[in-house]
């Protein structure tokens, strides 16, 4: 049945899970960088989630979510066999992948999942992939085994130093770029402050740097402009012009402000949801 959850893998209990969903038409068309919009109930909102992997033969896509607000919390109550009410995709422009040598893929937190699809695309295109991933702690590092299969090396940073470099991915990235002048592109997916820091780190190296932006969206098909971002001083829509943009031209501060636009309402929704779950 279409939109049925075939597999649920709990990556971080109560926080991050991976769903394998039967959606053959999306699986057939999805490319790295694409996302999907889902809605879970008749009164639900539409939220965008990056497609972390696809399997056209089995007609499945993989999404990974972090429980943040009501909709992701509700999604977390879904189990194998449940059906997603509305699932629309693939959306957004796919990552521009060409054979170009070495690509460094940077992922932070849940962003590692989205980055995985881009890294895999680069690997399949014949590029050498270096993955740089970071999280607060060792247990929160996602997709490490998957990335090891397609990367020449996986460099790690954790806030608490439980594995890899103690500190930020940007420090690892900077050191790597200093020692490897052959890198032709850096792609970063993660929290906005991380992507902003990546842009700052790569600027002196004159290396093409792309980031995947996670603006607030309503329709996801270019109709509403909720997701608009300033790129090089111009208004661009993350849903149809992106979600990937040249990091050096993105106004990250504006993006952070806009991501908080509905914070009060989001917190109220979450509170009400917790109450209803408890009762």
């Amino acid at each position: 049945m279409i939109n049925k959850i075939l597999k649920k893998r709990i990556l971080i209990p109560g926080r991050v899970s991976e769903l394998t969903i039967y959606a053959p038409h999306i699986a057939e068309k999805a490319r790295p960088g694409n996302f999907a919009v889902l809605r879970l109930s008749e009164k639900g909102e539409r939220i965008p989630l990056t497609i972390a992997d696809r399997d056209p033969e089995n007609g499945t896509i993989v999404i990974v979510y972090l429980v943040l607000g009501k909709t992701s919390a509700l999604l977390d109550t879904h189990v194998e066999g449940d059906v997603i009410l509305d699932l629309c995709g693939p959306l957004g422009k796919p990552t521009e992948i060409k054979k170009q040598g070495e690509v460094v893929c940077v992922g932070g937190g849940t962003g590692i999942a989205a980055m995985h699809h881009i890294a895999k695309g680069n690997f399949e295109a014949g590029n050498e992939v270096t993955s740089v991933i970071g999280a607060r702690s060792k247990d929160l590092l996602l997709f490490k085994p998957e990335l090891e299969k397609i990367s020449s090396r996986v460099l790690i940073a954790t806030d608490d130093g439980t594995v890899g470099h103690k500190g930020f991915v940007t420090e690892v990235l900077q050191k790597y770029l200093q020692n490897n002048s052959s890198v032709s592109e850096v792609v970063a997916v993660g929290p906005v402050p991380m992507m902003k820091a990546v842009a700052k780190v790569t600027a002196p190296f004159d290396v093409r740097t792309m980031v995947s932006l996670n603006s607030i969206m309503v329709d996801g098909i270019g109709m509403c402009g909720a997701c608009r971002v300033s790129v090089g001083g111009e208004i661009r829509f993350a849903c149809v012009d992106g979600p990937e943009f040249d990091a050096s031209r993105v106004d990250f501060d504006e993006l952070m402000t806009r991501l908080c636009a509905f914070r009060d309402q989001e917190m109220l929704s979450m509170e009400l949801f917790k109450k209803s779950e408890a009762s």
Partner: peptide, 26 residues
């Protein structure tokens, strides 16, 4: 806001009935 965003939130997503409906509206 664009009128499209404002009206889509209210009309398609029923945000005028938030928080009964999940989509918020300014």
């Amino acid at each position: 806001y664009s009128a499209n965003e404002y009206l889509t939130r209210v009309n398609l997503m029923h945000a005028y009935r938030f928080p009964e409906y999940d989509t918020p509206v300014p």
